[in-house]
């Protein structure tokens, strides 16, 4: 059942990215281009996505378990550190350069050609690099 729900949520997420235009890097870069030909679409996408989640978090607050039985995710400690700011800054930099964030980077894999695959491979490389670094810091093998 978990696998079916994950497939369904992933599929709906992917379809939403496609319909909203977030798989079109020109629209994403247009949103970031405040001083050029600014495209407000992404604000509608983010706003539209937040609405169902506002309701979902309210429902979640009144339950202690998800439908499938496991505990609902607890709020993280509100720690604002260098990793959060620095990582987000680095992400914003890469996001602007090409116009893909991790969700759309996956969603375009089937029709974005070689360029989509190159970006995806580099992104995986970056994730591996950071994962490896974290393992070394903790001093424990995976």
């Amino acid at each position: 059942m978990r696998i079916v729900i994950a497939l369904l949520a992933g599929g709906l997420f992917g379809a939403g990215l496609l319909v909203s235009g977030m798989t079109d890097t020109a629209k994403v870069q247009g949103w970031l281009d405040l001083f050029g030909n600014w495209d407000p679409t992404l604000a509608f996408v983010l706003g539209g996505a937040i609405l169902p989640m506002l309701v979902a978090w309210r429902i979640a607050a009144r339950r202690d378990r998800a439908v499938l039985g496991n505990a609902l995710p607890q709020p993280s400690e509100p720690v604002i550190d260098g990793s959060l700011i620095g990582g987000s800054a680095l992400f914003g930099f890469g996001w602007a350069l090409v116009g893909l964030c991790p969700g759309p980077a996956m969603a375009v894999l089937g029709f974005g050609g070689t360029n989509a695959m190159i970006f995806f491979a580099a992104m995986i490389g970056g994730m591996m690099a950071w994962g490896g670094r974290s393992l070394i810091r903790r001093g424990t093998p995976a």
């Binding site: 709906l12 609405l51 039985g69």
Partner: peptide, 23 residues
Amino acid sequence: WIYGLIGGLMIGTAAAIYLLVSG
């Protein structure tokens, strides 16, 4: 912007399902 809003609602609904059903 209408497609953006509809697509956004789909993304948010997916996130809501994954949160409430799968936790």
